[in-house]
Simulated assay, not measured.
Amino acid sequence: MSVPQQKVAVITGASQGIGAGLVEAYRELGHAVVATSRGIAPSRDPDVRTLQGDIADPATAERVAAAAIERFGRIDTLVNNAGVYSGKPFTDYTRQDYDRVVGVNLTGFFRITQLAVEQMLRQGGGGHLVQITTSLVDHASSAAPSLLASLTKGGLQSATKALAIEYAARGIRSNAVSLGVIKTPLHPEAEYEALAGLHPLGRMGEVGDVVGAIVYLEKAPFVTGEILHVDGGQSAGH
């Protein structure tokens, strides 16, 4: 049986903010999309399949991958966009904080990425993995202690490079975008001015800044193992 030709992107954390912007961007690129998050609504677009679920539960990853293959016949790109952030002093973190952040940021990445890579290998022709990380991995700040972000997102950055090398000969690329503070529904408008001041460019990032960076990586076949900073200059220093 032949593999369908339309490319397919799987996007986690896809109901709002960056994830919703990515669904739109990949449709504009001509991809069919499988989009998942805990509260995502059905789509009227026949080339967008939405599934509700907590990506921290490996069963959600199994359902998402199965839906992509059943509905569209392939997986070409996976964007691991789902993530949670909890910033507080190290000794204030609770076991619940740890389980929640590790569950979404690491466990949520692990199983869906395994399934995507397995399908990419089966169908041949390579593929693309994209992780969303944070520039806090590269510049710890005494003003914003965030050990769980460094622990989990730092792991994703290392995994991004490891996957790039492991699968380079099979045509599967792996990249990441490392973000500053992006203007999404996660941040109340009253905090915008203070958050803007955390970036050398003097503003928060926009969803379009992140989406544009990922679209660039999608269209850059000679780029793999890259950690692309979309952080207003934070990783360069203050």
Rank of each mutant, 00 (worst) to 15 (best):
N105M: 02
H128E: 13
Y93P: 07
F72G: 05
R111L: 10
Y216H: 15
G39W: 12
L195F: 05
V48P: 02
Q5V: 14
G73V: 01
A164T: 05
R74I: 03
A220R: 05
S15H: 06
V230Q: 03
G17C: 09
F222A: 13
G171Y: 11
A236M: 07
H31G: 11
V48R: 03
I172R: 00
A196K: 12
E166V: 10
T77P: 06
L147D: 10
P221T: 12
V23Q: 01
E166C: 04
F110C: 12
T77R: 04
A35C: 07
K219Q: 14
H128A: 00
N105L: 02
Q5P: 05
S15R: 06
Q131H: 15
R170E: 15
L136S: 13
R203I: 01
V48L: 00
E189K: 11
R44N: 15
S43K: 08
Q52R: 15
D76I: 10
L186R: 05
A59E: 14
G127K: 04
E193D: 15
H199K: 04
S158V: 14
S158D: 08
H229F: 08
L29S: 04
V210E: 03
S150M: 15
H238D: 11
E24H: 12
L198N: 02
I55P: 05
G125A: 05
Y26E: 04
V104Q: 11
T36W: 07
H187D: 01
E118V: 09
T77H: 06
N80C: 07
I69S: 09
P46K: 07
V130W: 10
G17T: 05
S174Q: 02
I165E: 11
R173L: 04
Q96H: 12
L147Y: 14
L115V: 05
I227L: 08
G73C: 01
S235F: 05
A190I: 14
I165D: 11
F109L: 12
Q6V: 09
M120P: 00
H31N: 14
I11N: 11
P46Y: 08
Y98P: 01
S150P: 08
A144S: 14
G83I: 01
N80Y: 00
S178M: 11
G17W: 02
T160R: 03
H238E: 11
A9S: 08
D99R: 13
V210R: 01
S178E: 10
V117S: 02
G202C: 01
E226C: 13
V211N: 06
E118W: 04
I227P: 00
K7H: 09
A144W: 15
I182P: 03
Y85V: 13
G155D: 07
K7W: 02
L179T: 07
R111S: 10
G124W: 05
E70A: 15
A140Q: 11
